[in-house]
Amino acid sequence: LDKAGIQKGDSLIAVNGEMLNSWNALVEKLDKMQAAAEVAGDKSAVMQMVYSRGGLRDTATVRTDSLFRVGAIFSSLADYKETIREYGFFESFPAGVRLGVNTLKGYVNDMKYVFTKEGAKSVGGFGTIGSIFPKVWDWHRFWEMTAFLSIILAFMNILPIPALDGGHVLFLLYEIIARRKPSDKFMEYAQMVGMFLLFALLIWANFNDIMRFLF
Rank of each mutant, 00 (worst) to 15 (best):
K3F: 12
D10K: 08
L12M: 12
L12G: 09
I13D: 08
N21V: 12
N21Q: 13
N24S: 15
L26N: 07
V27F: 09
V27E: 15
D31L: 13
K32V: 15
Q34C: 09
E38P: 00
V39G: 01
A40T: 05
A40R: 11
K43V: 12
S44F: 12
L56N: 12
L56V: 10
L56Y: 07
R57N: 11
A60E: 07
A60L: 08
T61V: 14
R63T: 15
S66Q: 14
F68H: 06
R69C: 10
A72S: 13
S76V: 04
L77I: 09
Y80E: 11
Y80M: 11
E82T: 14
E82W: 06
E86F: 13
F89Q: 11
G96Y: 01
V97R: 03
R98V: 10
N102F: 09
G106H: 01
D110Y: 13
V114S: 06
K117I: 09
G119F: 05
G125F: 00
G125V: 01
F126L: 14
G127T: 01
F133C: 09
P134K: 08
P134D: 08
P134M: 08
K135Y: 03
M145P: 00
A147C: 03
A154Q: 04
F155W: 02
F155H: 06
I158R: 00
I158E: 00
L159T: 00
I161A: 01
I161R: 03
D165F: 06
G167Y: 02
L172A: 09
Y174V: 10
E175S: 14
I176F: 12
A178C: 06
K181S: 12
K181L: 07
K181V: 07
P182K: 04
S183P: 02
D184I: 06
K185H: 06
F186Q: 00
V193W: 05
G194I: 04
G194Y: 05
L197I: 12
L198P: 05
L198R: 06
I203T: 06
F207Q: 02
D209Y: 01
M211D: 03
F213R: 00
